[in-house]
Every structure is written in structure tokens, then in C-alpha cells.
């Protein structure tokens, strides 16, 4: 079971992810609305796993992954985005993300990805 930080600009998506993660026995210790907010909350909360959206205002998700990995090279981040093209996935993985979920997602896919990220 992991302490998770959810990063998504949509309150609806944060609620959905929170419900899924809690049903899976995880603890959601924080939520962030954009990449900049995510970096601050990562430093303050030190979550074990981060779910990261890509298209967000202020700072997009892949840039936030780079900053978080600079701060903590061991950060475990899974991308959760509507943008599923190969180039985007490659950029996210190169930035340091461990897994990539394309929205809309199934509950089990999210929990499976968290397990994968935790075992990495």
C-alpha cells in the first residue's frame, strides 16, 4: 500500500483516481492541480507514488516530472494522460516516468500500474 500524490487539473479526475486508489488500499496524501503545484507538494509530502497528468495549465506534467526527478532521482511517477501517442510516452519515460496510463482508464489498470511502479 502506498502514499500517493494525485496531479491533475480536473477535480473530477482527481476524485475518480482518489476513489480507485483508496479502494485499492492506498492512501492519497495530497492532490495538485498543475505541475508547479505538484513539485511543491512532492517536496513537502514526499509521496511514494505520483500520478501525473500531462496537459495542465501553469506547468505541464512532463516538465514537472523532470523537476521532481532532479529533486529526487528515486521518485516513482506514473503518467495518467489523454495523450497516448508514442512520442508523448517516450518523452514521459525519458523524463523519468515509470509507467503510462491513457485516459479513459479502467480501475484495474490504475491499480496494476501502481503495483508496477512500486515494484520498480
Amino acid at each position: 500500500m502506498a502514499k500517493v500524490l494525485i496531479v491533475d487539473d480536473a477535480a473530477f479526475m482527481r476524485m475518480m483516481l482518489k476513489n480507485i486508489l483508496m479502494k485499492g488500499g492506498h492512501e492519497v496524501i495530497g492532490e495538485a492541480e498543475n505541475g508547479l503545484d505538484a513539485i511543491e507538494k512532492y517536496k513537502n509530502l514526499q509521496p511514494e507514488v505520483v500520478t501525473m497528468d500531462i496537459t495542465m495549465p501553469v506547468m505541464e506534467g512532463i516538465e514537472a516530472v523532470r523537476h521532481i526527478k532532479e529533486f529526487d532521482p528515486n521518485a516513482k511517477i506514473l503518467m495518467c494522460s489523454a495523450m497516448g501517442q508514442q512520442l508523448m510516452i517516450i518523452q514521459a519515460i525519458e523524463a523519468g516516468a515509470i509507467d503510462f496510463i491513457v485516459k479513459p482508464f479502467q480501475e484495474e489498470r490504475v491499480l496494476e500500474s501502481v503495483r508496477k511502479v512500486l515494484s520498480n
Binding site: 480536473a10 496537459t55 495523450m83
Partner: peptide, 11 residues
Amino acid sequence: FVGELANMVAG
């Protein structure tokens, strides 16, 4: 949700 729906369709 409406915003997220558009995000998913556009994505």
C-alpha cells in the same frame, strides 16, 4: 467532468 471529457476526446 465536461472539461475532462473534452480533454479525453481531444487527446
